[in-house]
Nucleic acid binder design. Structure first.
Ligand SMILES: [Zn+2]
Ligand SMILES: [Zn+2]
Ligand SMILES: [Zn+2]
Ligand SMILES: [Zn+2]
Lengths: 180, 180
DNA sequence: ATATATAATGTTACATTATAACATTACATT
DNA sequence: AATGTAATGTTATAATGTAACATTATATAT
């Protein structure tokens, strides 16, 4: 199976890009979460968990699936509601624990600027990312661009600060909403 | 009066840098919130408010003063407690409104990664900033570095995303805590 | 297979962060 | 002084996140 990458995009847009156009680093993530892609993505997560000797339980799979299928990043309580809609009784700790696991495995990211979670565009590799959050439609793109982190590292080094994690979240207008 | 700049630094460190070493852009903010500096900072805020025809009320002044005097960025409820200690009865909306005002005026920044507020190092000018948050001691430095934002802008442009605000928060270990 | 330990989930209660709505007070302008 | 507006006070509640402990599922060892 080829690696699958994922990105949250705005409703209605198609903007399909063939998978093999994605270079898996240094550029924007590539594809829309169609149903087939979600299946592939979950399968890939499953394989990664096997490799890492982690348990990809029903609960975790369901949470990841809901996040993948969403057009926008989801809050924890939005996820809870979706889970209830899907017939699973769930309380906050349940979803937060699942989210913790998914983040540890690098399958989802959390956006601090709006307390939401979205599927990672490239779970195959460890990476830092830049998120472009549309304030209009909420759609969020994950960019992988080493340049920004190199710049952060360089500046931090000057003040002897040891970087562990950098969160870069950019709010603005996506191409689609600019046009409209 | 000379412009005053401010930075939140770790307890106990002195690391004084003369004000005229600070170039007010492109580099780390410069000085420690000593009492004299806080006074100057508040006076400067006062002047900016007059220039902008904004009201720098007692409440707003008190909140800004507490933030300035703190070694670390403060949460809204920590501020509330400090205000109560200082004899003012206050409820959450009071402090949140004051914080909103101070942010609008560019006197404080909010850190999304830990829901705290800190005095802006350079309120004289509009700017984007990078925050280095020490996970050990909580001390937070504000860096002004155009390079990172240029990189963000450039990458965003490639996907036709219109940047409005970029939040860059870096978690790691400060020089002081690395040594210890 | 059964016992045992560990990991995951369920459940309840609560902590923390933030805001809505409306009353009151202070200030500015006439 | 009368009036309108901005700021603050006050109450209640929304939204986000976690602690603690019970239960269930899974893995490992005997
Ligand atoms: Zn990612
Ligand atoms: Zn948009
Ligand atoms: Zn600043
Ligand atoms: Zn430190």
């Amino acid at each position: 199976m080829v690696d699958v990458c994922m990105v949250s995009v705005a409703k209605g847009r198609q903007q399909k890009i063939e998978h093999d156009e994605c270079r898996h680093s240094g550029d924007i993530s590539c594809v829309q979460p169609s149903y087939k892609q979600v299946e592939d993505f979950l399968l890939q997560a499953d394989n990664l968990c096997i490799k890492r000797k982690q348990r990809f339980t029903d609960l975790r799979k369901q949470v990841l699936s809901l996040i993948c299928r969403s057009e926008q990043p989801l809050g924890a309580y939005a996820l809870l509601d979706l889970m209830k809609d899907a017939g699973r009784s769930a309380a906050p700790p349940t979803v937060y624990r699942a989210l913790d696991f998914l983040q540890e495995q690098g399958f989802v990211h959390r956006l601090a600027s709006n307390n939401t979670y979205l599927a990672c565009a490239h779970p195959q590799q460890q990476h830092e990312a830049v998120f472009l959050v549309c304030k209009q439609c909420g759609a969020t793109q994950e960019l992988h661009t080493d340049g920004i982190y190199k710049a952060v590292e360089s500046r931090a080094k000057k003040v002897s600060f040891k970087v562990e994690h950098a969160s870069v979240e950019v709010v603005g207008l996506c191409a689609h909403c600019r046009a409209a």
